[in-house]
Each structure stands twice: as C-alpha cells, then as structure tokens.
C-alpha cells in the first residue's frame, strides 16, 4: 500500500515561487494562466500487512506533525492501493 500526501501553502500565505512561475508563463505567451501556486507531495510506502485504517491514522498524524507546518501550510492525504 502507498500513501501520497500533498502539501501546499494556505491561500493567505505569499508564494513568491508560484508568482514567478506565473509571470514567466505570461512572458511565454500563456495569458490564460491566472495564477500558480507551488506545492509538494510525498510518496510513502507502507509495510506489507498494514491495514488501510492504520495507514490513514498514521499518515494523518505524520502529515500534521511533520510533513506540513499548519501555521502556513495545508495538506491532503490519499491512500493508494
């Protein structure tokens, strides 16, 4: 089983990297791009025999305490088979 955790800045936090990418996309001739926000994701492999319930519980805690900083970031967990 695998889990994927997406982490991105909250909408209220300045994302200068996203802004720079957006501005360059305009330069490259894509006026349809209104905004870009940059984030990251973590692919996590779970040991064989781990239940989906256990995985979700552990990954939620890990996302909250380690992978994301709740002051500036939000996260989303996906459990993949």
């Amino acid at each position: 089983m695998k889990a994927r955790v997406f982490v991105s800045f909250k909408s209220t936090v300045l994302d200068p990297q996203g802004q720079t990418i957006c501005s360059k996309l305009h330069d490259l001739g894509y006026p349809a791009i209104a905004d870009v926000r940059q984030g990251k994701f973590f692919d996590i492999a779970l040991a064989a025999g781990t239940s989906a319930e256990q995985a979700r519980r552990d990954i939620e805690i890990i996302a909250q305490d380690v992978l994301a900083n709740p002051v500036i970031e939000e996260y989303r967990v996906e459990i993949l088979d």
């Binding site: 800045f9 936090v13 300045l14 200068p16 990297q17 720079t20 900083n69 002051v71 500036i72």
Partner: peptide, 17 residues
C-alpha cells in the same frame, strides 16, 4: 523555535526569492 512551537508564526521564502 517557530517549528518547535516555542514562538508563534513561521519563516518562509524571502519575497524576492
């Protein structure tokens, strides 16, 4: 210290990168 929760807030990438 902010990551450890001993101080409030966070420090992020400089505005000008």
């Amino acid at each position: 210290l902010v990551e450890a929760g001993l101080l409030p807030g966070a420090l992020i990438r400089n505005r000008g990168l």
